[in-house]
């Protein structure tokens, strides 16, 4: 899907929180998070141990599904010089936990991503998605991008791949996130950044 996060929603913490909360619903196209009644789901509940979370639900993907989705993730976000491929960063475990979760949003994703895998398998023919020649797989992916709803599922999976990769310590470092460490004081942005802002503002005011 292509819509941006639902920016009309607000929450009590201000816009920063809103970005984090609504983006998920927007990203996966599953409607507003939290719309399901709490009594209808069997997840980790309203009072889980935040410091030592348990494994609240069993993984349900087959080996073939895990490998197929990891392979697809590597195509969507290939390895870089400074960052390993999703499959090497635990993507199969992540997507297995995601698609096995009992919540309505994740259950819907599971249904759509399984259908996506099936569509890709059909595209590559008898060799199957995992056994297909890389060129054949790439061509199949291009054809899927022309078809709905498979393309919508592919776009949503791409968001999850990116999200999964950049929420690992390796991914955070590669994207340029620095933080989550105790500091004596907060220095603010470097002088070079502030100088750049001043220059950019000067351009705007002189235009």
């Amino acid at each position: 899907m292509s819509r941006t996060p639902d920016l009309t929603e607000t929450d009590r913490r201000g816009a920063m929180r809103l970005a984090a909360i609504t983006a998920v619903g927007g990203a996966t196209g599953l409607g507003p998070i939290g719309s399901a009644h709490a009594a209808e789901i069997r997840g980790y509940g309203k009072d889980p141990d935040l410091l030592k979370p348990a494994r609240y639900w069993p993984p349900t993907l087959t080996t073939q599904e895990r490998e197929g989705l990891a392979l697809l993730a590597d195509l969507l976000l290939p390895a870089q010089a400074n960052l390993a491929a999703p499959s090497a960063l635990g993507f199969a475990d992540f997507i297995d936990e995601w698609m096995s979760a009992p919540y309505p949003a994740q259950q819907n994703d599971a249904r759509r991503f399984r259908a996506l895998l099936a569509a890709l398998g059909s595209e590559v023919g008898q060799s199957g998605w995992l056994g297909a020649d890389p060129v054949v797989r790439a061509q199949a992916l291009l054809r899927i991008e022309q078809r709905e709803p498979a393309n919508e599922a592919l776009n949503d999976l791409r968001k999850l791949v990116v999200g999964a990769v950049y929420t690992t310590p390796e991914g955070m470092a590669a994207i340029g996130y620095r933080g989550n460490e105790a500091l004596e004081s907060f220095a603010g942005p470097p002088d070079e950044v502030l100088a750049r802002f001043a220059a950019e503002l000067a351009k705007l005011t002189s235009a």
């Binding site: 201000g14 990203a27 968001k159 990116v162 950049y166 929420t167 933080g179």
Partner: peptide, 19 residues
């Protein structure tokens, strides 16, 4: 009030960037 910036990446914030 303002939000955004270079905070710790989340699935939500990164999905937004992909969009």
């Amino acid at each position: 009030e303002f939000g955004g910036g270079r905070g710790m990446p989340s699935i939500g914030s990164m999905s937004e960037l992909v969009s």
